[in-house]
């Protein structure tokens, strides 16, 4: 009888342990789709340094990192020119002209095949956010109404934008 009581108590204790697991967020089922959250443009208030801007630009365009020494030297190029926007413009076009490595830019055909997706991906790539409906509409019109509008020129405008200077 004593053994039965002991085993019963042990069984109940073990059962209690197994049920005493802390509930985590992953255990909950909210029955909504997972979404990736992006910051809004208004939360970007810190200006990138010249080196930071170059490093991020290179990664965005080539999908690989620039060496620390090259980041420093490219930053010096911007410092050495009075009109910083012009300096950035020249560096972007220098990267666009690179043959090794090649900048990772969608073809114009793939851009026009799904303009909305291209606009969304471009906003996510450069500005780390989704476009508003108004922004989507603007770029859809720009690309649709101008047959000469290339993905490179659209990328260029994002890389040169003021928002791209902030994080």
């Amino acid at each position: 009888m004593k053994n039965i009581t002991t085993y019963s108590l042990l069984f109940l204790f073990a059962l209690g342990l197994s049920n005493c697991k802390k509930e985590t967020l992953e255990d909950k089922v909210f029955q909504v789709n997972k979404v990736k959250l992006y910051p809004s443009a208004s939360s970007k208030i810190k200006e990138k340094s010249e080196s930071q801007w170059v490093a991020v630009l290179y990664t965005n365009l080539f999908q690989q990192a620039l060496s620390a020494g090259d980041i420093y030297r490219a930053g010096q190029c911007i410092t050495s020119i009075g009109d910083k926007e012009l300096a950035r413009e020249v560096i972007i076009s220098n990267f666009m002209n690179s043959t090794s490595p090649l900048p990772q830019i969608p073809t114009d055909a793939s851009m026009r095949a799904n303009i909305d997706e291209f606009v969304k991906e471009t906003y996510e790539r450069f500005l780390i956010r989704r476009p508003t409906e108004g922004e989507k509409e603007y770029f859809r019109n720009e690309i649709t109404n101008d047959p000469l509008r290339s993905a490179e020129i659209v990328f260029f405008s994002f890389a040169l934008s003021n928002e791209y200077l902030f994080y």
């Binding site: 443009a41 922004e135 020129i153 405008s157 994002f158 934008s161 928002e163």
Partner: peptide, 13 residues
């Protein structure tokens, strides 16, 4: 057109 799109982005920001 590049500047036009840049200015649009700048105005949004």
């Amino acid at each position: 057109p590049m500047y036009k799109m840049k200015y649009f982005l700048d105005n949004s920001y």
